[in-house]
């Protein structure tokens, strides 16, 4: 018996070593960017750093942050790529500061150098043309507060508790128009468990109207999908998308290289051309299909996330 036990113990021990050795040459990146958004950049990074093997873990911003939180102290991830700057600030303890040379080139900067700006992401309105006729198109955020949407298939709101985009939209709108406005929005709305669910719902016509990250909206529009993307004239919500190095990252040098790469002008040109996003670099012009920032009234989050989550929860349970 003891012989068998010893064998079993040896086998267990040997197997334990495998994960540690297997991840030695990898850079592990947690990201909320989808495949289409991330792969052009990753391909470019691979060319610039052929020696670094990047492992990608995808999930909603909430999911990947939660993984980081669960792993705090024993992180497997090196970089969190994607998510609004608020997410990084609220969870500052999960990340470490790194003063990248590229931080200075950005339209905004984190004085603590925890997060590094990536793109400026606006959330225009998306409307399903399957459900909504041209006459009924909303022109302003205020237009979203009418009873007609319920008949046409409802407004869909990403739950701010589960979606960073949902938080950005609701916090910015509440800051601009007050909480009463958000309460009216929520009254007849459907609540999606994630931003992708909300986007896809309008794309497929499951819901009539919602908001969308402008890059995806532009791509869908270009593909001829039955949608309309509208920049409301009263206010457009926006966030700065960022990345940061995870505290205790096992591959710190590779992580720094990745952060520097993501800030470089070369990669931001890829960002603009391949992913149709507005670069956060001051010296990179926005994609041509997107409207100029100057023509829009950009509103950004005001109330912090726990407040938005708690207040929104109150509206829902009414």
């Amino acid at each position: 018996m003891s012989r068998y036990l010893a064998l079993a113990a040896a086998a267990m021990g040997a197997a334990m070593l495998v994960p540690a050795t297997a991840s030695a040459a990898d850079l592990v990146v947690y990201t909320s960017h989808g495949e289409t958004t991330s792969s052009p950049i990753l391909d470019a990074f691979k060319q610039a750093h052929p020696d670094i093997n990047v492992t990608i873990v995808r999930g909603g911003t909430g999911e990947v942050v939660e993984r980081l939180r669960a792993e705090a102290g024993n992180p497997t991830a090196d970089v969190l790529w994607g998510g609004p700057t608020q997410t990084f600030e609220e969870n500052a303890a999960l990340f470490q500061a790194y003063e990248s040379a590229t931080d200075a080139d950005m339209v905004t900067v984190d004085p603590n150098h925890i997060w590094h700006p990536y793109t400026v992401l606006l959330q225009p309105i998306i409307v399903s043309t399957k459900r909504v006729s041209a006459d009924d198109m909303p022109k302003t955020q205020d237009d979203l507060v009418t009873a007609k949407w319920k008949e046409l298939g409802s407004l869909i709101i990403p739950d701010p508790a589960k979606s960073g985009t949902g938080y950005t939209i609701l916090s910015a709108l509440s800051g601009d128009k007050g909480w009463e406005f958000v309460g009216n929005l929520a009254k007849d709305a459907r609540i999606a468990p994630g931003s992708d669910d909300a986007f896809n719902a309008v794309r497929d016509g499951e819901a009539a109207v919602g908001w969308i990250n402008e890059d995806l909206g532009a791509k869908w529009k270009a593909e001829g999908l039955p949608i309309e993307v509208i920049y409301p004239s009263d206010a457009v919500t926006g966030q700065v998308d960022a990345q940061a190095i995870v505290a205790g990252a096992p591959h710190l040098d590779e992580a720094k290289a990745f952060i520097d790469f993501l800030g470089s002008k070369a990669s931001h040109e890829v960002v603009r051309d391949a992913t149709i996003r507005r670069s956060a670099r001051a010296d990179v012009t926005p994609p041509t299909v997107l409207p100029e920032l100057g023509s829009l009234n950009i509103v950004s989050p005001v109330d912090p996330r726990p407040v938005v989550v708690a207040r929104f929860q109150e509206f829902l349970s009414k």
Binding site: G62, V65, E66, P160, A161, K162, G164, V309
Partner: peptide, 13 residues
Amino acid sequence: VLIYTSFLSEAGR
């Protein structure tokens, strides 16, 4: 789904 999202989500955790 409720259990999953309330365990693994960013802020409504």
